[in-house]
């Protein structure tokens, strides 16, 4: 038989045999019979040397093409057989069995709120700062323009220590510390723990968490305050949240306002949570009282600015519809896992 015909016959036979091969052994048999050490195609190799020189290019090409074709057929048959063998139930994994969980802890919801708040304000150019929880009366009250006989100063409302210092009743002392140590401009938020002598219940505890904001520069206005809180609210609660300001009173700001955000429960339509007003009170704020500026050595003629305070616990409760503050300090893992 001519060499060329032999090559073609081997490829043809192999293709036919592989087409009906239905297990790995059958495929392997074909491989051994063709390109195996004693295979028929392997045996043709030495014969190629004896081909007349003028036929060499043509025969060489045919031989190589056939070799590649055989390899391809074997590969395809192998894949096909392997795919059908996967169906063996003894080798099948139950993919619905639980995976081995990679470590995935969670930050406490209060911390998450605190960090989220910080990050939102950081994007607006605020820097998050902290201060001690044990404070001087000056930093917690005097500097903040609290009247000498203000009830919040009483031992009824505020925790005191023997040396006359106290547990800060808000994070505002951080404002005072910042302003005492730095000239304007100042743009900080101060998240942290504060203390008030409340009897613990579903909405009160002896401690709570606040985030305080302060921005002092030459020309900061109520419009900046409103816009900053609006930007915060729309990032924290969602794009459709609006901000409303109502007149209020705090010794450390003038004008003072209470800031309401659109109720997240009802979207402003009115529900029991917002007492049908469509708004929920979220922040106390205002323009820093000139007396506060004077108390820290700033000149109200050359600088002005706003301050605001929000309850981290309250923001978290609103965001996640949590009704009982005590869940935060119980630290039940079934609770912690949800955030």
């Amino acid at each position: 038989m001519e060499l060329l015909e032999q090559i073609q016959a081997i490829v043809k036979d192999a293709a036919e045999a592989l087409a009906v091969a239905n297990d790995a052994a059958a495929v392997e048999a074909v491989r051994a019979k063709t390109i195996g050490r004693n295979g028929s195609f392997t045996a043709l190799g030495p014969l190629m040397g004896k081909v007349p020189p003028e036929d060499k290019p043509k025969m060489g090409r045919a031989f190589n093409e056939a070799k590649q074709e055989l390899a391809k057929l074997l590969e395809e048959a192998k894949d096909r057989v392997a795919a059908s063998e996967g169906a063996d139930p003894a080798k099948m994994l139950d993919v619905t069995l639980p995976g081995r969980k990679a470590p995935a802890g969670r930050k406490h919801p209060l911390t998450q709120t605190m960090e989220e708040c910080c990050n939102i304000f950081r994007r607006m150019g605020f820097v998050a700062t902290s201060g001690p929880e044990i404070e001087k009366v000056f930093n917690n009250f005097d500097a903040l323009n609290a009247p000498a006989d203000h009830p919040s100063r009483s031992a009824q409302d505020t925790f005191y220590f023997e040396d006359g210092r106290l547990l800060r009743s808000h994070t505002s002392p951080v404002q005072v510390r910042t302003m005492l140590s730095k000239k304007p401009p100042v743009r900080i938020v101060a998240p942290g723990r504060c203390f008030r002598r409340d009897t613990p219940d579903a909405t009160h505890g002896v401690h709570f968490h606040q985030i305080e904001g302060l921005y002092i520069d030459t020309n900061v206005s109520m419009a900046d305050l409103k816009s900053t809180l609006l930007a915060f609210a729309s990032e924290f609660f969602g794009p459709d949240i609006k901000v409303r300001m109502r007149p209020s009173f705090f010794p450390f700001t003038e004008p003072s306002v209470e800031c309401d955000f659109t109720c997240v429960m009802c979207g402003g339509k009115g529900c029991p949570v917002c007492k049908n007003s469509g708004w929920i009170e979220c922040a106390g704020a205002g323009m820093v009282n000139p007396n506060v500026l004077r108390n820290v050595g700033y000149d109200p003629e050359t600088c002005q600015g706003f301050a605001f305070g929000m309850g981290i616990d309250r923001l978290t409760m609103i965001k996640h519809r949590i009704e009982d503050l005590r869940l935060f300090s119980e630290n039940d893992v079934r609770f912690l896992e949800q955030f």
């Binding site: 605190m114 960090e115 910080c118 950081r122 994007r123 607006m124 150019g125 820097v127 998050a128 700062t129 902290s130 730095k182 401009p185 100042v186 743009r187 900080i188 998240p191 921005y215 520069d217 109520m222 419009a223 900046d224 409103k226 816009s227 900053t228 609006l230 930007a231 409303r244 300001m245 109502r246 007149p247 004008p255 306002v257």
Partner: peptide
């Protein structure tokens, strides 16, 4: 503000200025 109406205070773009350095951020 009280009499004229706080609702008339405009909403303006928030300007992010670098009033302080991020290295002063003690929470990060």
């Amino acid at each position: 503000a009280r009499i004229y109406g706080l609702d008339k205070i405009p909403e303006i773009p928030v300007k992010a200025i670098q009033a302080q350095k991020f290295s002063e951020d003690t929470f990060a």
